[in-house]
Amino acid sequence: MKPAPFDYLRAETLEEALEALHQAGTEARVLAGGQSLLPMLNMRLARPALLVDIMPIAALREVADAAGALRIGAGIRQAALQARPGLARQQPLLAAALPWVGHAQTRSRGTLCGSVAHADPSAEIPLVLVAMGGHVHLRSRRGARRVAAEEFFTGMMATTRAEEEMIEAITLPHAAPDSGHAFREVGRRHGDFAITACAAVVDARSARLAVGGVADRPVARALPLPSDPALEDALEQFAWSLEARDDLHATAAYRRHLVRRLGRAVLEEAAACRA
C-alpha cells in the first residue's frame, strides 16, 4: 500500500503554485495538510502526476478578521485554529465542530481549506461553512473569484472549483450578536465520519439547519423557529428531501430519523443558548 510515483513541487509563492497548476491541469493536485489526500495516494485511488505543496507559502498562513468575517488561509491547520483565542465567541459553531474533525493527531496537520476542497459529504468543516453562509475564495493564474459555500459543493467530492484553481481561503461570517449556535454529530465511533451531523443557527426571527452525512453534500435550509409547531412538518420535508441512502453503517431511514431528532435538538439548543 504505497503511492504511485508523482513529482513534487514545494511552492514558495502563490504565483509558483498557480503556474504549476496551470501547466499541469488535471494531472496536478494541491497538497496542504495531506490528511485526506494521503490515504487516497497510499491506496492508489488517486494518482496525480504532480503534487503542489502549498504549505510553505507564507501568504496562505493567515487568519484575519475581515469585515465581520473570519478569513482562514489555505495554510491554516485545524489544530492551530482550534487554539485561536476568542474562537468560541466569534465562531461558536466552528469551535463546536472542530473537535469532531478526525483526531488530535490528524488535526495537527490537516487544514480547514483542505477539508473544504475534499468535499466529503460527511465532513464537519464544509457543513459549518454552509451553515454559516460562508464563502470559498478561489484563485487561478487567470484571476480570483468568490463562491458561496452552498454553490461550491455540488456532490460527492465534487465542487465548482475548476481544475487549475486552488482554494486560497475561506471566510466565515462571525456569529451575529443575538444568535445561538449548536452542533451535534452521530457516528459509529468517536472520530468516525458522521452518519448524520447537524449544525443550527438561530436568531430572534429565523432558524437555519445544516445537515451533513445524509445527502451527497452538506445542505442548509431555513426552518421555522423551534417554538413554531410548523417545524415538525418542515423537518419531515427536509429529512426526505436529502435523498438518504443505506450504507454499511446506517440505513436511510435511520439517517432521516436523526435529521428529525437531532435537527430539532440542535435547533432547540441553539435557541436556548441565544437566550
Binding site: 497538497l31 494521503l38 490515504p39 503534487l51 505543496d53 493527531q105 490528524t106 495537527s108 496537520r109
Partner: peptide, 28 residues
C-alpha cells in the same frame, strides 16, 4: 498506512502527527 491506527504517530515540530500520512519530502 491510512491514518487510523496511530501506530506511526511521531511529533513533527512538536505536534503529534501520522508519519504514514506525511511525505518525507514535506519534512525538509
Amino acid at each position: 498506512e491510512h491514518g487510523v491506527c496511530g501506530a506511526c504517530t511521531v511529533q513533527i515540530d512538536g505536534a503529534p502527527a501520522r508519519a504514514c500520512l506525511t511525505l518525507a519530502v514535506q519534512m525538509e
